[in-house]
Design a protein around this nucleic acid. Structure first.
Lengths: 235, 235
DNA sequence: ATTAACATGCTACCATACAAGTGTACATGT
DNA sequence: ACATGTACACTTGTATGGTAGCATGTTAAT
């Protein structure tokens, strides 16, 4: 939230590409090249290349040496793991939170719910997702686990894209917000078990809808068989 | 374990630096520079720079623009979060593992315990730690959560260094191995609660010894006050 | 003696040039 | 018609030169 110093070109390029990928403005499978982006942004190849490397470490692009770079297709197995990570950490954080919760923390969460309601009214998908993230972030902040929150964020690139697709295909589900309200209520009651069960439903929700998405955007997803790692060469 | 194709120079440099940092061969606080490393390895600055960037994303080095790059000092707050992540994920994985465990999985774990015993006998700290990691890795592998395991590994740089220090200062604690044996036993009995309680002790163990380490290697650790982020300028 | 201005040497950052691998289109030979 | 080789247009990987910012030490001024 602080006014960031005008960062390096490398970071600027990274931010731009990151946003365009998770917003599906650059759809999975799109080929991009260092030269192409560099010319489009009037910078040299070096910072673009460094941005590519960062993106590849978050599995947002696949760099194939001497061949090209493509926006990664969504890997459903990976989505499961990303969701698993998020669920595991949120469970633990909820436990901590009910032990050390403050009124200001709960207040912030309620404020974020309000913002999210506005986004829902205006049908702003991106804002909606961002406020959703912010809502969950509060619990990590209050329990001094912000590094873990950032880890989740950087390890949720595939999960995030599927969330975006899901919201785009159907209308935004209002029950996400009621789930948040239920969660806050459970936290108020120090009922960590109830909070965890709400979280589980909340996080797993989108998974059940994935089949429909898969038929509408088939080429956004990675075929299971092309696992690049196991060649079977002559031994 | 597969014979890797001779990777890029960039990756080679990264691997070399990574090993030297987590082994404390390059102690926390050491200043390194692109040029220095490049000349020492007879490569150009570009791949070295790319290696630096990767290392900085794992918080193993701090790159200060226009000034220099130093091997990061161990941040105890970060260690806590790294431990928190590991504990959270291992708890969840244990739950999965007892539901879908196979005999071959348990067998592998026992074999790893044997290897670790040998390392203990020969006082090989590095091997000991590596086998320890491999032991835990098995549960992730069997439950199809290898991405999460790799995530832990790349997010445990500070924790790993403190582990290494701890083992170096005192003799290797034999009870680590008995804890592993107890864990396997609990898994055999499908007693996930018991397994989790063993894991908690196991992972938290080294934390209690940190005070001693702190006095022996004071300059390996980050002072709490120099948090660069909060200047209090004129408002 | 203290302090401000400046020169110097260091750094990471970026631009550019070159090298090396990959796939495709096209020509060539059979 | 078909297989084969070959030049070429792409890609990422690496090397190198130049630039701007920071820290330090020296000098000059007060």
């Amino acid at each position: 939230m602080r006014a960031k110093k005008a960062s390096s070109i490398s970071n600027t390029v990274y931010d731009l590409l990151y946003k365009n990928i998770v917003n599906l403005n650059l759809p999975p499978g799109t080929t991009i090249s260092e030269k192409e982006i560099a010319e489009k942004l009037n910078v040299s190849r070096t910072p673009v290349r460094e941005a590519f490397i960062k993106l590849s470490q978050e599995a947002l692009v696949n760099i194939i040496p001497q061949k090209g770079t493509i926006v990664s297709r969504i890997d459903l197995a990976r989505v499961q793991e990303e969701r698993f990570l998020r669920e595991s950490l949120e469970f633990s954080v909820v436990d901590l939170f009910v032990k050390s919760k403050t009124d200001s923390g709960l207040l912030k969460m309620n404020q974020m719910i309000d913002k999210q309601k506005k986004a829902l009214k205006n049908l702003e998908i991106l804002e909606f997702i961002n406020y959703d993230d912010e809502f969950h972030r509060i619990m990590f902040e209050e329990t001094n686990k912000l590094l873990c929150y950032n880890l989740i964020k950087s390890f949720s690139s595939h999960y995030r894209r599927i969330r975006y697709l899901s919201l785009k295909i159907e209308n935004i589900p209002a029950n996400v917000i009621s789930q948040h309200e239920d969660l806050v209520q459970a936290l108020k009651e120090n009922n960590s078990a109830k909070a965890q069960s709400i979280l589980r439903k909340h996080i797993q929700k989108l998974i059940f809808e994935k089949e429909e998405i898969f038929t509408v955007y088939p080429d956004y997803f990675q075929k299971e068989e092309d696992n690049i790692d196991d060649y079977t060469f002559i031994s």
